[in-house]
């Protein structure tokens, strides 16, 4: 009785061994003719989702240099420096009708720091900073991640600074001239100058 059961089990094992291999082979053979799911990435690309967050882009034509994106940034990767324009300079109008008043001499985003949180995008009053669909921008040098968006060259921005200083100096001079005319006390005048 015992040996009979062992024998039965033995034959059953043999049969199961062969049968399950055949079942598996049938499945793999079927999959041989299933079209591959591979997407050949650099040639064929998946459509990115609607609200994807990738590399930022700044449209400098619209930027008014308000510094709100920089302040919103949790990792301080946006670096903005502005210079006031002097009267008579026409900086143009943004696409939603705001008048620009500041020369944006530096607008640098360090993508090595950027965490792609999109928090800088919402405060922008002119919607000039936004996410693009570019996600392949690896570099060999970390310094290459500093993206400079400012449209002004270094000489131009230096010139703007000098212009402003000159203008301010003129203004001061004018003020001083205006103040000296009504013959104000000399002590208060000196105080104002030192300020």
């Amino acid at each position: 009785m015992q040996t009979e059961n062992v024998m039965k089990q033995y034959l059953k094992n043999t049969w199961l061994g062969i049968w399950t291999v055949l079942v598996g082979m049938k499945i793999t053979f079927k999959h041989l003719f299933v079209p591959a799911v591979t997407i050949q990435y650099p040639d064929v690309r998946l459509k990115l989702p609607e609200r994807e967050r990738n590399r930022l882009y700044v449209n400098m034509d619209d930027c008014i240099g308000c510094d709100q994106c920089s302040r919103a940034c949790p990792v301080n990767c946006i670096d903005i420096e502005t210079v006031k324009s002097i009267p008579g300079e026409d900086l143009g109008i943004t696409s939603n009708g705001k008048k620009k008043a500041l020369w944006v001499t530096t607008f640098t985003i360090d993508f090595a720091k950027c965490c792609y949180c999109q928090l800088c995008v919402f405060p922008c009053p002119t919607e000039c900073i936004y996410m693009t669909d570019v996600f392949e921008f690896s570099e060999y040098e970390r310094s290459n991640f500093l993206y400079k968006f400012s449209t002004l060259t270094d000489e131009e921005s230096a010139q703007k600074k000098i212009n402003l200083e000159k203008f301010q100096a003129e203004k001061e001079a004018q003020k001083a001239a205006a103040a000296s005319k009504p013959a104000a006390p000399a002590s208060s005048q000196e105080e104002k100058k030192s300020e």
């Binding site: 793999t28 999959h31 041989l32 591959a36 050949q40």
Partner: peptide, 13 residues
Amino acid sequence: KVSAHMQDRLGPM
């Protein structure tokens, strides 16, 4: 190639 197509991949391309 055979392994790739059995696993619904493409293999070396």
